[in-house]
């Protein structure tokens, strides 16, 4: 499969180079919101949504910046785009789907400081993807993030029922589990070649 085909980009960003488990992006929500499956899957959904919107906006913005030769403003513009697309998603959800808006609650505004989103728009710029490739990359990354969060929350729900030594309760054990999960995802390396 060629490196820039849509299928490969989807597969790559979702499984082979999973954003959370092998690129270390979005670790904060991964550790913070993965306690329960309900919230974890909703968080994944919201992040995917913001990823798609900000990926497309950033693509358009980058064309403008390059044509005006102002690449040094890229970072500031991207972060502004992400913050405003989070705001946009918030407004749209509030208007058309108040139930989902209430369910996401505080997680929605916090997505602005999720490094998976800034990472996504930076990587798509470095890789020089076109519009369709950007869309595939954003969907794949969002799906991968949701997948990692869902698996982790399932594991932690099980873990909560077991007798763990008191010193290992909390972040230490969660990181160990994440390490094993990341080890498992390394098995996907070379997929699609």
């Amino acid at each position: 499969m060629p490196d820039d085909s849509i299928t490969y980009i989807l597969l790559n960003s979702c499984i082979i180079n999973n954003f959370v488990l092998s690129a270390f992006l979005g670790i904060c929500p991964f550790l913070g919101v993965s306690g329960r499956f309900e919230t974890a899957s909703r968080m994944g959904l919201a992040v995917t949504f913001v990823m798609i919107v900000s990926s497309l906006c950033a693509y358009a913005l980058n064309l403008v910046l390059v044509s005006m030769e102002m690449e040094f403003l890229r970072l500031i513009c991207y972060i502004a785009v992400i913050a405003s697309s989070v705001q946009l998603v918030e407004m749209v959800l509030k208007r058309y789907s108040p139930a989902l808006f209430r369910a996401l609650g505080i997680f929605l505004p916090l997505i602005t400081t999720n490094c998976a989103i800034l990472g996504l728009v930076l990587f798509q710029t470095f890789k020089g993807y076109n519009l369709v490739q950007c869309l595939a990359y954003a969907i794949g990354a969002g799906a991968g993030f949701t997948l990692a969060l869902a698996i982790m929350s399932g594991l932690r729900e099980q873990l909560a029922l077991h007798d763990v030594p008191s010193m290992a309760r909390g972040a230490g054990l969660t990181l160990m589990v994440a390490g094993i999960l990341s080890l498992a995802f390394m098995g996907f390396a070379g997929l699609g070649n």
Partner: peptide, 25 residues
């Protein structure tokens, strides 16, 4: 080699946090 790959990052930070939690306890 696993230590410089992504899983190693999780394992080493997890281990440090366990050591700190043990000291604290």
């Amino acid at each position: 080699a696993i230590m410089i790959l992504p899983p190693g990052g999780f394992f080493v930070l997890g281990a440090w946090l366990l050591v700190f939690a043990w000291f604290k306890e």
